[in-house]
Design a protein around this nucleic acid. Structure first.
Length: 349
DNA sequence: CGATTTTGACCAGCGC
DNA sequence: GCGCTGGTCAAAATCG
C-alpha cells in the first residue's frame, strides 16, 4: 500500500529526527556560535577562529559591518531571531512527535475495528425490491426482468441475507457551494435528483460511469444539521480499479484523485449499521469522535475502509489537512528557512 | 457529436 | 385501494 507508506510513522520519524537535529543545531548555535558572533560584534577577536584566511575575511567583514551599521543591534536581532527559530523548531518537533503518536494510535484503532468487522460482518434488510436486486447484480447484469414471481419467496429470504457494502462519507465544503459533487477519484454519472421530505436540500443520485458493468451507486445530499457538510452514501463495490491506480503512473495522484476534494474535511466512513467512525482531520489530535450529524443509528466501519482507494483517500486528506494548516506550513517554512540560513552561515563562516 | 446533466414522469414499497 | 415517498427512467438540454 504505497500511499500509506508515504505517510508512514517511519517517514514522520525521520522528519522528526531531522527537525530535532535542526533544533539541536540551533541550540548549539545559541550556546557557541552565537556567543562567538556576539563576541565578534562587541569585541572582535579573530584569534578565536582557526584558519588565517577565514579569520582575516571575517575580521574585514565585521569591520565593514561596524562601519555601516550598529553591529550590536544587528547581533541582538540575530540572536533574537535564532532563539525564536530554535523555539519554533522545538515546538515543531513536539508537534510532529504528537502527530506521529496519534497516527500510530489511529492506525491501531482502525486495524482493530476492521478485524472486528471482518469477524462479525453485517446484514442489511432492504426496504425496496429494486435495491435488493441491484445488490444481487454485482456482475452488473441488472434489471427487473431477471426477477420472476415464482422465486419470490426464496428471493425474499436471499434478500434478507444480502450483505451490501454501504459506506457513508461526510465531506465538509463551503456551505455556499451548491454543487453536490464529492470528488472521490471515481467517475460518476448523475441520473437523478430529488428533494426528500426530511431534508430541504436536494439529493443527487449517481451511478458509476462504468455502469452497467460496475453496480456502484452514490447518493449525495447536504446534511440537514450542517449545510456545509455533504453526505455521500456509497452502495456496492467497484469491480474495476480506481482510475488513479489504473493509470499506473506515480504522477496519477496529481490527477482526479481524492486529494482534490475542495476542502479539508471531517471524513466519516460507516456502514448503515454499526458504530460510526469519525476521522476528524481538522483536529490537532486526529482523534476519533462521534459525529452529531443525525445518525441515530450506530455504525460500523466498512471493508471499504480497508481498500487501497480509501486508505489513499485518508492519507491524502491527512496530507491535505496538514498542508492547508497555516500554522503547520509556517512552522515548516521556519524550520526549513532556519536550516537554509544555518547552512549558508556555516558556509560563510 | 458523444457524453453528461437536468427534470418531469413513472414505478414500487409502505402505512393507513 | 389510495396517497406518500424514495428511487429510477428517459427525453431534452447542455457541455466540451
Amino acid at each position: 500500500m504505497p500511499a500509506i507508506d508515504q505517510f508512514s510513522p517511519q517517514s514522520v520519524d525521520s522528519f522528526s529526527i531531522s527537525t530535532k537535529a535542526a533544533a539541536a543545531a540551533a541550540a548549539a548555535m545559541d550556546s557557541t556560535w552565537l556567543d562567538t558572533s556576539l563576541s565578534f560584534g562587541l569585541n572582535v577577536n579573530p584569534h578565536q577562529v582557526t584558519g588565517e584566511s577565514l579569520k582575516r575575511e571575517l575580521y574585514t567583514d565585521f569591520l565593514d559591518l561596524g562601519r555601516n551599521h550598529s553591529v550590536n543591534q544587528e547581533a541582538g536581532e540575530l540572536v533574537e531571531k535564532l532563539n525564536q527559530m530554535s523555539a519554533e523548531n522545538k515546538k515543531l518537533t513536539q508537534l510532529l512527535t504528537v502527530m506521529c503518536e496519534n497516527y500510530t494510535t489511529l492506525q491501531t484503532q482502525l486495524k482493530d475495528l476492521m478485524s472486528k468487522n471482518n469477524e462479525t460482518g453485517f446484514t442489511v434488510s432492504k426496504k425496496r425490491k429494486a435495491e435488493s436486486m441491484d445488490n444481487n447484480n454485482h456482475n452488473g447484469v441488472s434489471g427487473p426482468t431477471e426477477s420472476t414471481s415464482s422465486d419470490e419467496d426464496s428471493g425474499k429470504r436471499i434478500r434478507e441475507d444480502i450483505k451490501t457494502k454501504i459506506s457513508r462519507v461526510y465531506v465538509r465544503t463551503d456551505a455556499s457551494d451548491t454543487s453536490l459533487v464529492v470528488k472521490d477519484g471515481y467517475q460518476w454519472r448523475k441520473y437523478g435528483q430529488k428533494v426528500t421530505r426530511d431534508n430541504p436540500s436536494p439529493r443527487a443520485y449517481f451511478k458509476c460511469s462504468f455502469a452497467p458493468s460496475c453496480p456502484v451507486k452514490k447518493k449525495v445530499q447536504r446534511s440537514a444539521e450542517d449545510r456545509s457538510v455533504l453526505v455521500a452514501t456509497y452502495e456496492g463495490e467497484h469491480n474495476h480499479p480506481h482510475p488513479s491506480q489504473a493509470e499506473g503512473s506515480l504522477g496519477s495522484s496529481h490527477g482526479v484523485t481524492l486529494g482534490s476534494i475542495p476542502c479539508s474535511a471531517s471524513i466519516i466512513s460507516s456502514y448503515s449499521s454499526g458504530p460510526t467512525i469519525t476521522l476528524d482531520l481538522t483536529q490537532p489530535g486526529l482523534g476519533l469522535t462521534q459525529p452529531g450529524l443525525g445518525n441515530n443509528n450506530v455504525k460500523k466501519p466498512n471493508e471499504e475502509v480497508k481498500s487501497p482507494a480509501f486508505q489513499q483517500f485518508l492519507v491524502e486528506q491527512m496530507a491535505s489537512s496538514l498542508t492547508k494548516d497555516p500554522s503547520f506550513t509556517a512552522a515548516l517554512a521556519a524550520a526549513i528557512s532556519g536550516k537554509i540560513q544555518q547552512n549558508s552561515l556555516v558556509q560563510k563562516w
